[in-house]
Structure formats: C-alpha cells, structure tokens
Nucleic acid binder design. Structure first.
Lengths: 344, 344
DNA sequence: CTTGCGGGTTGAAAGGTTTCAACCACGTTA
DNA sequence: TAACGTGGTTGAAACCTTTCAACCCGCAAG
C-alpha cells in the first residue's frame, strides 16, 4: 500500500486482492472496473484505475482464462514463414483480427508434420478461440476434436474435400490450367513442373490443372520433378537435375509450384548460362512482391493474398461469434500475370 | 466412462477429474503421470495414459499455469513480418527454442508503437517466461517492469545505450561505414541515404556511420530522405522525390536502410529509365535472399541473421534458466557484399 | 515382534480471476 | 408508513491443475 512501487519484490506480483485492499473496495469491484466499467460509479472507477496504475497491476491471464473459460487469442499455423506469400496472408489476418482486439499467435510448421502437431498441442492446451491452418500432415482427427471442444476452425489455402470444415482457398486446378495454357499458347512443348511434396494438395492440384491442359493438346508433354520443400534451394537443385538431361530431352518451360522455387530455378539457369526466356521459360506461382523485381521479371499465377487473409479472418470471426454458422467453402480465382520470364 | 467418445458433449471438456474417475485412481496420480512419470508405477502409468488417450483429454493450460506459476512460451515482437530479414531471424530463434521444447509466439509491431504496446500487454498478461524484442516506441519502462516480474528480456538488433538489458545486435555504424566507403571508393560523390524514421536506432546509426566516412572525404556529400516505413513502396516514393531534383543535383548513389527499400528504389529507377549502376548505384542493407536475385543483383551490407537468431535464443534461454546472469551486450560484425548494383 | 524404510498413492490446499446471488442505502411510489 | 425499485457494492463459489504432507503397505533390519 505504501511501498514506493519501484522496488517491487520480484517474487510475488500484484493481484486484484492487493489492488482491492489498497483501494479500499472489494475484490469484485476491481474486477468490475476492468470488465464492466459501466456498472461501477465514476468515482470508484477512477480511484481503482489510479490504484491499478500506481501498483502496476497486470491481470493474470491464466486465472482469467481459467475462470472465464475464454481466450480471445487466435492461433494460426502457416506452412512457411519464410515464404512472403504466407506472411502476406498472415498480415491480412492479423490486421483484421486486430480490429476486433484479438491477438494472433503465429506458428510455423515449416512443412513438418511434427512441428504442426506441436503447435496444435499448444493451441489446444491454450484453448484458443479460433484456429487458422494450412495443413501439412494428417490433422483431420485433431481438427474434429478441436471443433468438438468449441474451437472455430478455418482451413486456409486448401480445400478439404469433405465439406467438413469451413475453408478458403484459391482454385489451384484453375491456376495450373492458366499456367499451362499460357506456356502452351506461347509455343512451349516440353513443360517441367517443379514442386512438392505431391502429398500437398496445393501442389497436386496445380499439377493436375496443368496436366489437363497438356492432355488436351497433342504434341505437348509434361514432366514433373518432385521436391521435398518449396524454397529457392529446392528450385536450384531441381534445375541441376534437369540440366543433366540430354540437350533435346530438356524442357523448354518450367512451371514452378511457387515463386521461391521459380526464383531458385531462375538463378540456377542463369548460372548455367541458359537463356531465359529464349531457351527456357519460367512461370511461378503466388506473385509475391519479389517476383516483379527479379533478375528476369517473373511471370506468375497471382493469388489474391490480402483478400485471402482478410476473408479468412472474417470467416473465423463469424464462426467464433456464431458457432452455429454452417460450413462454407470459398474459392477465389487466381490470375495470370505475364512478365518477361515467359517472353511477355 | 462408457460414452463412445465420439459424441463428446461440446459444452464441458474432459478434466483430470474425469480421467481419474475413469481410471479408478486419484486426481494427483493423473497429474503425476503427466508431470513426473518416473515416480508412478509402470502399470498404473500405462493404464492412465490409455484412459487419457481414450477420453481425448487435453490439459488446460490456463489452470496449469495458474497453479504452477510458469509458462514455457517465449514471446517475440518483430518490426515487420513482411521483411524477410526478420522472418529469417525469427526462424533461427524458433528452431533453437524448439530444441528446448519452448514454443515461440510471434507478434508483429509493423513499426507501430500502439501495436507493439498491445503485444507487450498480451505477453505480460500471459506471463511468458521470456521476451525478445526489437523496440519501436518508448518501451524501456515496460521492459523494466517485465524484468522486475521475472521475465527474461533480450533486445534484438538494437543496442540499448544504458547497458541495462541483455542485447544482441549488428554494428550498424560499422555497416554504414562499410557502405559509404564502398560507394566513395568506387567514385561516387553525391550519396543519398533512404530510410526512416530516424527515430529508429538502426536507421540513425547506419546514417551516422556513412556520415563519418563522408565527412572524412572532401568533395563527397551525403543527403538523406526520411521515410515513414521501410518497405519497397517507401523506396519507390523516395526515388520519385529524388528524380524531381534538377539533373546535376541528383545523387549518383543511393544507400538504402534495408533491402526492401533498395528494391523499391531499383524498380522506380528502372521504370524512369535511369541506368543502374551507370547513372546511379544502389546499395542495400541486410542481404536478404532476394537481394541476389534482383533485376540488377543488389549489393548489400550483410547481417548474419541466422546467427543473430540462434544467439538471441541462446542468451534468452540462459537468462531464463539462470536469472542472475549479468547483462551482456553482444555485437556482431556486418559484411559488405558487392554485386552488380554498385558496379561489382 | 517392533521399528524403520521406501515406493506408490491419496486428499486437500492453493493459485488469481470472474461471476452471481445477496445485500445495502436511499429515494419513490402507493 | 410500508413496500418497492435502483444503482452500487460485496462475498463466496467456481474454474482446473499442481504440489506436498500424509498415508498405506509390504519388507528388511534389529
């Protein structure tokens, strides 16, 4: 009550009880000041607030959550924080959630199921009120359980086949078709797809879309190099493999499953003095900001990533506020952006 | 006890009490199974684990934390998630923490003091065991309070003048000198620094370093365009301003406070048909992965970002395990990477 | 036969908040 | 004058886990 504040003993921290004592009110009143300021008289309210400030009281969230049973935070598990596509999406989510005073807790699976699982544990134990996830491993049972517990779940950038969970994604098959049509249309005949693992739906569908177009066009062939991850290094390695092929077996176009892979491929090709787009065209996916400023500006299939983020957040908020909302499955359209790497 | 598991009522979730009842043991034993498995007999342990699994019990972290008084999580507040430099650092931190089974909760201030403050509130209420922060606003008092409460604090990528907090950073003044020396050495005479706000120490020191070199070299002048943020858009805008200058007042070299700004500047110059590096040289900072693959590969002052991340994590862990550790102030050395944008 | 010991287990307290029924003081209405 | 609201405030219960002293039981030592 009369200590000088500064030298707070590091052991125990100030609790509502201390505040109540110092302010000469009951414990419940202090709580009311923080949670329903309107029902407490102006004078006591101001007084209590002053005491709180003076004592440096900070509510213990664990206790609050335990009693109240709710946690405002939302968890998000992304595939790869180092991929600007995901940070852009996360950014969109974060700002929208921020408007509703909900913190976003970001977890990075890095495409590893174990890490994804670790973050699921964390969020589940934490009882977050909502979860946004771009799944890697077999997480459907976990998600079901989460939802049974009352956690809102939105699957991002991937369509869960069984319309079981609300999801938002960009039409990957369509993106694959756009890509292939463009490459074929500009005269390419031997297309190589680079990306992986094929277990990821994003990858699979983009490849499928391309395959459809190729199948429908005589004289064009599509091969595929499966990678373990989707970063620039993987792109470079894939190109190394392709360059090992005999000259006329080599592809004349690369379709990369994302821009990082494409940029890696571009670098490797340049290093090997292969001319882009003359000898080989390159087409990426996502249209991250860096695609436009690449050595050879990169053509890419653009995903509306801001929209993806804000819409995902909106759907999640809706689901949190109104758990009865029925499952929705929004699909956004990708868009082809032609630049120099494909001869634009 | 005999419900089919699947149709768990969505209201109340399974608690230790339920597990204890179902397993026919006491509540304390269940807790022991989870926290000190070694002291409980193998048979009961296995049995309890089986029941846990069957009932889908997930410990309530709020209650655990309240009672145990500890939270394994570590919070980190970065300046800008969309800047690959920071995600690279965060990545390093995350993997190192992961090895110690500590989750990392990432908050993004986006260079906005209010958001920084919001995340500080969050982490403080959450009673995280450690905090990594690249500060924007005036947060010293907050940090002091945090530490008084027993939270380990490490300041990242910025040196707090008063050796009050453990910190790790890269020598920004040195970086500024390296940059200026290189530009001056390759014959440039009118250098413009782009970045901001100058309130950020990173920015200020890089500018100071450059200034020192310029001051020591007759015939060379340094001007500065202050920006509100440090993204590509800011770089483009700054260039627009510079291009408005009369032809012979224009700088012949740009030193950007980070690579994003540099890339933005590069794009704007290209668009305006200014030749890089012939008419204007550009030098960035950070050496993010995309610098090398830019249209004109970007020279840059490289910061050892992986090291920054892992060392920061190490220092924090040390501080958590051993709160008495005395304040340290590590400074890493930047390194100049010359590429084509400065005529390499 | 008693005592001591040690591995397992139990039961209850404790932790800090929110919530809610009860209560109070003080006008207002019948 | 009695009954009734009403705006504020109170006190205790409840949330779910961890922790720790106490206890139990079987066995070895004295």
């Amino acid at each position: 009550m009369d200590n000088t504040g500064q030298r707070e003993s590091p052991g125990r921290s100030v609790s509502v009880k201390d505040v109540a004592a110092a302010a000469g009110v009951s414990l419940g009143t202090v709580s009311n000041v923080m949670n329903r300021p309107d029902i407490v008289s102006a004078t006591t309210r101001d007084h209590v607030l002053a005491v709180i400030e003076e004592l440096g009281f900070v509510r213990n969230n664990a206790a609050r959550q335990l009693r109240a049973g709710t946690n405002a935070s939302v968890g998000m598990i992304v595939l790869d924080v180092r991929n600007p596509f995901f940070t852009d999406v996360a950014q969109g989510v974060e700002t929208r959630l921020g408007e509703h005073r909900r913190p976003l807790i970001l977890g990075n699976s890095g495409q590893q199921p174990e890490r994804e699982s670790m973050y699921l544990d964390l969020f589940e134990e934490q009882r977050v009120s909502g979860l946004l996830i771009t799944p890697v491993g077999r997480v459907l049972p976990r998600l079901r359980r989460l939802r049974e517990r009352g956690t809102a779940v939105v699957v991002v950038d991937r369509r869960i086949g069984s319309r079981e969970f609300t999801s938002i994604a960009v039409d990957d098959k369509r993106g694959g078709r756009l890509a292939a049509e463009h490459l074929v249309g500009s005269g390419r005949r031997r297309i190589a797809f680079i990306g992986g693992p094929h277990g990821l739906n994003q990858v699979k569908h983009r490849l499928q879309g391309a395959q459809e177009v190729v199948d429908a066009t005589p004289g064009v062939q599509l091969s595929s190099v499966e990678t373990a991850t989707m970063d620039a290094a993987a792109g470079s390695r894939a190109v190394a493999d392709l360059l090992a092929l005999s000259r006329n077996a080599r592809p004349d176009a690369l379709f990369a499953a994302n821009d990082l892979v494409a940029l890696g491929a571009l670098q490797a090709l340049t290093l090997a003095s292969v001319r882009v787009p003359d000898d080989v065209a390159i087409l990426g996916y996502d249209d991250i900001d860096f695609a436009a400023s690449a050595a050879i500006p990169l053509s890419s299939v653009r995903q509306p990533r801001d929209e993806l983020g804000t819409l995902a957040a909106d759907m999640l908020l809706e689901l949190i506020d109104n758990p009865g909302t029925k499952v929705r499955d929004r699909v956004l359209e990708p868009e082809l952006v032609v630049r120099r790497s494909t001869g634009g």
